[in-house]
Amino acid sequence: MSTALLIMIGLALFLGLVLGYAAIKFKVAESPLVQKIDAILPQTQCGQCGFPGCKPYATAIASGEADINQCPPGGEEGIHKLAELLGVDPKPLNAEHGVPKPKSVAVIDEELCIGCTLCIQACPVDAILGAAKHMHTVIAKECTGCELCIPPCPVDCIQMQVVQEDLTTWKSKYPLHEIRNV
């Protein structure tokens, strides 16, 4: 019994060490530009830009396949940051991809929820907690406000609630002064 345990533990430790070493040794440096662009994007993973998430959109911007004005959750602020990073002129948000909305989180009306799990599958950031035939709820801290959970809900029990700005949620806006076209 103990031999079996020791062997499995030893095997797991050994393989873990080998893989850990390989992860360092064979680390593939990602394009630093993609990482910088990805850091600016809001990480809502909402897909409004037409890409499956923020990382694919960042890759597309870096390779010149996508424009910088396709991210509604990032808003003007995000476009200005991207423009500065890439050294191009900022342009207005492309309305095809949606309009910027105030930061909000999804709230599930727990009285109405039938526990169908459809919203759990739709959530790109795993912010919805629940099990089949049990009430679901949104982890407000994890929710990015992407609204992807609203269309699949069969009983329309999910609403978006605007996050009120207070001392705990306040962030400095960018740019602090309006940029004037000269």
Partner: peptide
């Protein structure tokens, strides 16, 4: 009796290692 268990672990590790190696080289 440890055959299946240990083989799964080893194969999974080999696949991971191969993936990392190929990604780099």
């Amino acid at each position: 009796f440890l055959r299946t268990l240990s083989f799964i672990v080893v194969i999974a590790a080999i696949v991971q290692f191969t993936e990392m190696y190929l990604h780099k080289q």
